[in-house]
Design a protein around this nucleic acid. Sequence first.
RNA 1: AUCCGGCAUUGU
Length: 354
Amino acid sequence: VFSWTSIITAYTECGHAHDALTSYQCMLHDGFEPSPHTFLALFNACSRIPDLDQGRNLHAYACMKGSDSEVSVGNAIFRMYLECAAVVDAENFFASLPVRTLLSWNSMLSACVDQGQGKKALQWYTHMKSDGVEPSHYTFIILLKACGRLADLKQGGILHTDARKRGYASDGMVGSTLITMYGKSGAIVGAEDVFGELPHRDVVSWNAMLSAYVEQGFGEKALHLYRQMQEDGVELTQRTYVIVLRACANLGEKEEVRLLDGLAMKTVSYHIGQAIHADARKRDFLSGGFLHNTLVSMYGKCGAILEAEHLFKAIPHRDIVSWNAMLSAYTDHGDGKKALCLLIQMEKESMIPD
RNA sequence: AUCCGGCAUUGU
């Protein structure tokens, strides 16, 4: 049994979870009965695939053998349901668990948030506290993220106070989540306060602050922060550029058109955008593709249709976002004909408009 | 030791 379990674990870890389940069949065939350890490995395999049907069968079998009373196995079953996106099953199972560890609570909460069920996560949190389980900084990050998505400033503020009391508010990761939460809730001052009080800022906290400015339409402040990042010697990332280019696009939308070489352009934003584009190139952030879509959108919003077009054509793997960005560049520009042409081309390349 | 955690592009 021990060897079979090792084989199953090994297959799962190498990303061959299907083979893990096949080995289990072989193991049964040879007359071996699964131990709790085997179940652990099997549920991990089901999570990986993910295979809900097998997971359910195994769950039933584990119950029959009494293996499900083991805390670790219980957690594995629980995670299996979560990762197979069977939230209802997960919730039912979770409610029936005799021992709920902090880790299982965090898994539950995070799965709710990932699936857009932030409210549910907050409800479960009340339950968690009444169960006498104390939240960790993981818990706060998960819940604050939920508040950000819901733009629930009230709950977010309560959690912030609570996190502060427990000494979690100065944690860098909690801090970034707080900044994002305040940013998405429109409380830019709250975001700035958290950012200003962070003892150790890393790129992510800077990016979070930058993103908060952009989302709330403070393009100039964002550009200012971008400069400050460079002065402070922060190691910029590709994401930094995604965000700061969005700031340019934002400014471009607001700027009045002016004629440049006979073309209607948002000249100021356009030049800033170009400069940032050059920065990104210098830092070799243009490969990988994630900046392409943002650049197309930015140039489009600055009135630089030709550059947007040029970049669009150079994208190796155009996804739906690339097409949408190019389409809205044309329509913003009042070029309905080209937009329609693009739509036709889209269908030719068997892209389905959403 | 392992499993739960932060910032990301288009349109709506």
